[in-house]
Amino acid sequence: MTKPPRRVPAALDIYVDHDRCVGNAMCLTLAPGVFAHNARRQSEVVDPEGDAIADIIVAAENCPTAAILLSDAATGEPYEV
């Protein structure tokens, strides 16, 4: 079934699930202004506005373990990639 096009939120809340994050670090390449490694070399959000929204969405899509969870900062509604 085709879903209706979704509106991309104007601002995103970004959460990295550390039970899932394996430190693949693709997000650090795709959205380097937002994500950085912590001491365990898992991804952390250092600046939620550090990159364009489109880049953050691409980073979340490319997480191999789907550890990056996004939601609309205004409504709190999950934004599934």
């Binding site: 394996v22 430190g23 693949n24 670090a25 070399r41 191999p64 373990t65």
Partner: peptide, 13 residues
């Protein structure tokens, strides 16, 4: 079982 880090198994999913 899929490793970890930058070489994490590409085909894991």
């Amino acid at each position: 079982s899929f490793g970890s880090g930058i070489h994490y198994c590409l085909g894991a999913t």
